[in-house]
Amino acid sequence: MSDAVNRPAGMPDPVVAPINEGMWRAAAAGRLDVQRCASCGAHRYPPTDGCYRCGSVRWDWSTLPGTGTVYSYIWVPDRTRTGTPEAPAVYNVAVVTLEGTEGDPARILSNVIDAWSPDDLHVGDRVALAPVGFGDGDDLALPCFRMLS
């Protein structure tokens, strides 16, 4: 399954809006961009209009290293695939604490696409950006992750 990607089937695409379009485009280009306050430099996720730390409404996209640490995770049965009792068909949802941020820790909710079974993932595991495209073209992607061994 080395080329396969463990992603849930049938999930909706995100809404592409001015406040988030930059991150989907960055992911398609292989970068992890999150909002950074243009006044105080604090990173924040998910996108919001104002800075929690200083109140400024001015912000830019900031490219992070793309690495992080698994904060928590779950496994959800994937009804679109057939599994076995030994290897159930499950996908994961992981909360990842991003590295290289300023301010309160920024976490992102995502998938670790090369983790396939409950033994593959632990709190504290390190992961790195592995974008998965969405939409009709090749210019938008979700910031998903892969294991760093």
Binding site: M11, P14, V15, N20, Y45, P46, P47, V93
Partner: peptide, 14 residues
Amino acid sequence: IPLAASYTAPFGMA
């Protein structure tokens, strides 16, 4: 989905 669900629903946070 609403905009606010764009950071959860696409990842199967269902």
